[in-house]
Structure formats: structure tokens, C-alpha cells
Computed example of a mutant assay.
Amino acid sequence: MALVKICGILSAEMAEHVAKLEVDYIGFVFARSKRQVSAAQAAEMIRSIRSASPERKVKAAGVFVNPTLEELDAIVSEAPLDVVQLHGQESANYCREVKSRYGAYGIEVIKVFSLSTAGAASVGEEGAVEAEAESDSYESAANKLLEPYRDAVDGVLLDTFDPLYGGGSGKTFAWDAIPPYQAWCREAGVPLLVAGGLLPDNVSGLLEQYRPDGVDVSSGVETDGTKDLSKIITFVERVKSIV
């Protein structure tokens, strides 16, 4: 079954409810966002996760955009994260440094790559990688984009590009771009997660057709900008029903 990450949790009460579901990651946003939390708030929610599901490891993921190492140190020292998710223009060398810095503490590094609705991808100091809508172009773009990050990350996440925040747009990207990214991740031995515009109504189609290793949702399980537990439950059930 695919992994599930519920991102953008804002309260200890909701963190506790979500931790009791069949989820694998709960995400906290430290980057500038309407869902941004402090290290102290995240620490409180992580305590709720641990107490709500002591028999099962639900990983706490922190979402960052171009953080300094000093900023990461300050947050990780207060909030016991299991995952650092890098959602900006972090280079492969930066990811490698983060992995080296926190790997001994069991903290994983997930790098996010943002794709446009047309399938173009961009990240980091390497600049933009433009891909046409043919599979060979997608393969070339994926390999060019990902290869520098080999052995620098523990997972890859594809999201829809947003010009303001980088991700969290609530829009889907061109899913036919997924296969070469999935192929690279399988060869490299790391999971591929997909985000961007996912809803309880469309996640089954994504999983059945493209088989990513996991999915990440935030706005798609909200009502009027607030996490909706009934939508989260439905989303998780539909993901875990796909085998």
C-alpha cells in the first residue's frame, strides 16, 4: 500500500486524531505559509502524535523552504522531527550536508521537485529543466534533475509549482511526467511521493495508473481552509484500499 502524508497540521487535537489513522507522515510547515507553525507548536503536536499512537511510528515531517543550517539546527533541537522536507531551491550539496548533519539521529531528508501543469520541472542552482510532453523528454529531464541528488536524499516528492510558495498550490501537475521520476527513484532505492491538487476523489486514479510510493495532501483535505477530519479519513481509506 502507498504511504500517506497529511501536511499542514495546526493543532495538537488534529495531530492526535490524524495519528490514530493509518497514516505514515504528519507534516508541519515551517516555511512562510498560512499553515506555518513555530518549533514550539510543532513540538507540542509531535508529543500528541507519540501519545496517540505509541505502538506505531508515525513520522513527523518538517517542511522548509531554503532554510539556513542554523535555522534547521534551532528547529530540530526543539521539535523532534523524523523528516526534513526541503521545498525550495536547495542544491544537492546542501541536501547532502543536511543528510550528513542529521542522519545519525535518524532524520531523513526528502527533496521536493516542483513541476508545472505542463510537465516542466525546476530546482536549485542547476536552474530550470524544461520538458516537452513526450516520454523521452520527460526521462531526460528527470535524469538531469535527479542525478545530482543521488545518495543525497532519502526520498523524492513531486509537487505542482507555485510562484509564491513553491508548492501547496492545490493544483495538479502533468501526471504523465511521473514514470521516469519513479523509475529513477526505484533504481536509486528511494521512495517517490506525489503531491499537488490531490483530493479524496482523484487520489485513487493517480495510484492505480502511476503507482507512486506515496502521496502527500494538505489543501485537498480542508474545508474553508481548515483541516476536515472526515475528508482526511476518506482520503486515507481510499489510498490504503489500493493494493
Rank of each mutant, 00 (worst) to 15 (best):
A43S: 15
V123E: 14
F173A: 04
E90I: 00
G197K: 01
A39N: 03
L69Y: 08
E130K: 14
L198N: 06
K59W: 10
V221S: 06
V236W: 01
V65Y: 03
Y105G: 13
S140K: 15
Q36T: 08
G189T: 05
G127I: 10
E70L: 03
V112D: 14
S219P: 04
C7P: 13
E71Q: 15
D151Q: 11
F64Y: 08
L199F: 00
N66C: 01
R150D: 05
S218C: 07
E90D: 11
I26G: 02
D159Y: 04
V190Q: 08
V63D: 01
G197W: 05
G205L: 01
S91P: 09
E208F: 02
L198C: 05
A118E: 14
R35P: 00
I9M: 13
F113V: 15
S169D: 11
S33Q: 11
I46Y: 02
E71N: 03
G189F: 08
Y105R: 15
A183N: 13
A12K: 13
N66Y: 06
S11K: 05
T68V: 01
K34T: 02
A183E: 15
A195H: 02
A15Q: 05
V29W: 05
A43H: 06
P200S: 06
K227R: 12
L193E: 08
I49F: 00
L164N: 11
C95R: 12
D82V: 05
A15I: 08
V215K: 05
A131F: 03
V221R: 08
Y210I: 00
S140T: 14
P191M: 06
K34S: 11
G166Y: 05
K240F: 04
A174P: 02
Q41Y: 00
D176P: 02
L164D: 12
D151W: 09
S114N: 15
I233H: 00
L193H: 06
L145S: 10
L158R: 07
V83Y: 07
T223W: 02
F113T: 14
K57M: 01
W184P: 04
A152Q: 01
A183V: 07
D73R: 12
I46T: 03
V65W: 06
V37F: 03
F173C: 04
A177M: 07
L3N: 09
G62E: 02
V203G: 09
L3M: 14
L10V: 11
G103I: 09
G220A: 03
D176I: 00
N93L: 15
V243Q: 12
V109Q: 13
P67W: 09
L3W: 13
A142S: 15
L207A: 04
M14Q: 11
R96H: 14
E134Q: 10
A195E: 07
S11L: 10
S91W: 11
L145W: 05
V112P: 10
A42G: 09
A79F: 08
S100F: 09
L72Y: 06
A131I: 04
K57S: 03
Y105K: 15
H87I: 04
T223S: 14
L158I: 06
G196M: 03
I232E: 06
F30K: 01
L198A: 10
Y102C: 14
V203H: 07
E132G: 15
Q85D: 12
I26H: 00
E208T: 07
V153A: 05
A42L: 04
V109P: 10
V239F: 09
Q36L: 02
D213K: 09
F173I: 04
V76W: 08
E132N: 15
T234I: 02
W175Y: 06
A60W: 03
G166M: 08
E130W: 13
F28T: 00
V236P: 01
D151F: 12
